[in-house]
Amino acid sequence: METPVRVQLRDTSAVAVSKKLVELRRTGGVVTQGRVLTLIVCAGDARGLEASISAATDASREHPCRVIVVGRGRGDGPSRMDAEIRVGGEAGASEVLILALHGELGDHQESVLVPFLVPDTPVVAWWPNTSPAVPARDPVGRLAVRRITDATNAENPRAAISARLAGYTPGDTDLAWARVTYWRALLVSALDQPPHEPVISATVSGLRTEVALDLLAGWLASRIDCPVQRADGPLRVELRTPTQSIVLGRPQDGRVATLSRTAKPDSLITLARRDSAECLTEELRRLDPDEIYEAALSALPKVEYV
Score class of each variant (00 low, 15 high):
Thr130Ala: 15
Arg164Ala: 12
Val306Ile: 15
Leu99His: 03
Glu197Ser: 03
Val140Thr: 02
Leu215Lys: 09
Ile200His: 07
Thr152Ile: 15
Gly141Arg: 02
Ala296Ser: 12
Glu291Thr: 12
Met1Cys: 14
Ala178Trp: 00
Gly106Thr: 08
Trp219Lys: 06
Gln252Trp: 14
Gly44His: 01
Ala163Trp: 07
His108Cys: 07
Thr262Arg: 11
Asp138Val: 00
Gln244Trp: 00
Val17Trp: 05
Ser52Phe: 04
Lys20Met: 13
Ala212Asp: 10
Thr149His: 08
Val211Gly: 04
Leu235Cys: 10
Val17Tyr: 04
Arg142Asp: 01
Cys226Gln: 07
Val22Thr: 15
Pro157Ala: 07
Gly73Leu: 02
Gln244Pro: 10
Gly249Ser: 12
Ala295Asn: 14
Ala43His: 04
Thr270His: 13
Thr27Asp: 15
Arg286Ala: 11
Pro139Leu: 06
Leu101Lys: 00
Ile85Gln: 01
Glu294Asn: 13
Gly233Ile: 08
Gly34Pro: 08
Arg261Gln: 12
Gln244Thr: 09
Asp253Arg: 11
Arg164Cys: 10
Pro195Ser: 04
Ala154Cys: 04
Ala51Gln: 11
Leu24Gln: 00
Ala185Gln: 14
Thr38Ser: 01
Asn129Arg: 14
Pro4Gly: 11
Asp150Thr: 04
Thr12Ala: 08
Gly88His: 00
Leu287Gln: 09
Thr169Ala: 11
Phe116Gly: 08
